[in-house]
Write a protein that binds this DNA or RNA. Structure first.
Lengths: 234, 234
DNA sequence: TGCCTAGAATGGTCCTACCAAACGGACAGA
DNA sequence: TCTGTCCGTTTGGTAGGACCATTCTAGGCA
């Protein structure tokens, strides 16, 4: 529609408030439904935020990474990828990100990463760890690491991957035989990163994915326990 | 809305036809406007295709990579990425893809890649090379390489990057001082890949990005010639 | 048999009305 | 004067109806 273009090309500054739907309706000489549908699309694209009530309306806002990630995640849902391919990709990304993070990350960030990794390790040592909490923490660790690389592209890709299907990572934590080792490995990685030992850090990352491959292989031979691979986003 | 979820989770096969808006309206006990807005969003996401007339309606369709790319392109418009960050990312991807392509690509693919690379080299040796043709060929070379890695994730990321912002690569071809070297480097890379010389191939890739960095640095010192960095997607 | 038209199905638009939320100002009480 | 409450106004959200434009189909007509 003309309306969309007018808004997007208008390059309105972030935070700007668009006219109300009823005003636009008469402004563009169209029905309110059309305006609403156009706004819905802009909202879906993440370009505007809609608020109700007085002083409500459509506010231009900054795009967030999550929008892009969601798009990629949706695509991946329709085009299933082999676990091995996913691992291959993630391992590459992780190695690069770690290398960059070591160079570009600040001392404080590295300390915090290690702290959080150790927190994860402690949580996972419990008899009945809360998998929701631990997997969320794992997610945050990955994002934290990606952010330390100081390159938004890596952060975007990591977020997209995580949104799409990190179910396999959860599998690692779900299996008691791998849980401890995986958690300890996170701490080892973070420690090596903090100490500037790049080769050690990369070694630990490879180890993580070797564990993951073993865990998945094990789950595949016991398919009756593998159904959680499908439903971890309630 | 519930409607969206119902459709997406419903895992409807591609090509399936959704009920008409009026049927949905009564089915979900809601107004037609709500149904229409929900459908508009699905359409925007690229999940459905809407046709008018009898036997019209919403048809489920396969998502295309272009949707993801478009989303990324929009995001990049709002969040400009430093050329150095883009190069950093692409170089990483290229090195990994090349390594994988050497292992997983067939002999025929490698020969074809070399052939096309040499074709590009010849094209670029002309006095007034057609930049539209050559950049398109460069794009195809990259995609061909990505496909040889036999991992759709790499291919998708490369496609997204190319759709969004490979303007800097064009800069390399636009500048006569770098044009020849860049083209020759493509051939060298493809030849090393065909011959299984991984370290040589990776070396050529690094060389490519060194050239690119030099070229961009040079353009920055002559800003009056750098406007094409902005407008190469007419 | 082949073309053509009327009708049905369906999305696209417009309109009107009402509901729900959120803000702001008026007003009563301390 | 300060403060808290309440009500009116603004605005998005939803419902439902009406009409138009487009597309397909079936039946009629030459």
């Amino acid at each position: 529609m003309q309306i969309e273009a007018a808004i997007v090309d208008g390059r309105m500054p972030s935070g700007e408030r668009l006219p109300s739907e009823r005003v636009m309706q008469s402004q563009f000489g169209t029905g309110r439904g059309v305006v609403r549908e156009a706004l819905k699309i802009l909202k879906q694209k993440g370009l505007i935020e809609v608020r109700k009530g007085a002083k409500g309306g459509a506010y231009v806002r900054e795009l967030e990474v999550s929008n892009v990630s969601e798009s990629l995640a949706l695509f991946m849902k329709q085009h299933p990828v082999e676990p091995e391919q996913l691992i291959e990709f993630r391992e590459t990304m992780d190695r690069t990100i770690t290398t960059l993070a070591m160079t570009h990350g600040t001392r404080e960030e590295k300390e915090e990463l290690l702290e959080e990794a150790m927190r994860l390790e402690i949580l996972l040592r419990e008899d009945e760890p809360d998998l929701l909490v631990t997997s969320e923490l794992d997610r945050q660790l990955n994002i934290m690491l990606a952010r330390m690389a100081r390159n938004p592209l890596f952060e975007w890709v990591m977020r997209a991957l995580q949104m799409g299907f990190n179910s396999h990572d959860y599998a690692l934590y779900q299996n008691p035989r791998f849980r401890d080792r995986a958690a300890a490995n996170w701490s080892d990685t973070a420690r090596a990163l903090r100490d500037g030992e790049i080769m050690r850090a990369l070694g630990f990352i490879s180890h993580h994915y070797i564990l993951l491959r073993q865990c998945i292989a094990e789950n595949d031979t016991l398919p009756q326990d593998a159904e959680f691979l499908q439903e971890d986003q309630p």
